[in-house]
């Protein structure tokens, strides 16, 4: 059953059809929320909210974009709303240094190269977090999700050209800071 048929059946109240849509797109929705919030716990909550909202508003889904892009956009907007809340920002500031560091490469370092690579990765992660939100969002959403520029631009509600510039600028800023830290782009 293709996506359009699943959406039609879900519109008619078939929750199992909607469950299949959730199964197919939950990773993309979760990752978009995670990209915006940086907290897996918050991202899961936002992802749930987004799917529930999507189910409630299926009649408003005009299929101009894919269901995936539509529901990811819902999650993204909700995540941004949460990110803008003052209380959330204060909490994030407190937790800033712990932001996803558990995702850094783990395991036994077997060579200096691995150590150097892990160190570079950690530095890059910190620099990504230090980017202005607009640049960070563009970079993380573009690289971190399986979406093309057009889809990401639609989700972020910006022109494709603006998205490309932001991704490029994010990379440039990271490279410049790494250069000052002694890393050379060979």
């Amino acid at each position: 059953m293709n996506e359009s048929e699943l959406v039609d059946r879900a519109r008619q109240g078939d929750q199992s059809a909607f469950g299949e849509l959730v199964r197919q797109h939950q990773d993309a929705v979760f990752r978009a929320a995670l990209a915006a919030l940086g907290s897996a716990e918050d991202a899961e909550e936002i992802a749930q909210d987004a799917f529930v909202a999507a189910y409630s508003n299926l009649d408003g889904f005009r299929e101009e974009a894919s269901f995936r892009t539509w529901v990811v956009a819902i999650a993204w907007r909700r995540a941004l709303t949460r990110r803008r809340r003052l209380a959330y920002q204060v909490r994030r500031l407190v937790q800033w240094t712990d932001w996803n560091w558990n995702m850094l490469p783990g395991g036994e370092p077997s060579s200096e190269a691995q150590l150097a690579g892990a160190e570079l990765g950690e530095r890059v992660q910190r620099l990504i977090q230090a980017l202005p939100p607009k640049l960070r969002d563009a970079l993380v959403m573009t690289i971190g999700t399986d979406s093309n520029y057009r889809e990401v631009a639609g989700i972020l509600d910006i022109p494709v050209g603006t998205l490309k510039w932001r991704v490029s600028e994010a990379r440039r800023q990271i490279k410049a800071k790494l250069s000052r830290l002694g890393y050379r782009d060979d």
Partner: peptide
């Protein structure tokens, strides 16, 4: 490294 770092952040 940038790509890898981003993926580590959001590709769970």
């Amino acid at each position: 490294a940038v790509d890898e770092a981003v993926r580590r952040v959001v590709t769970d």
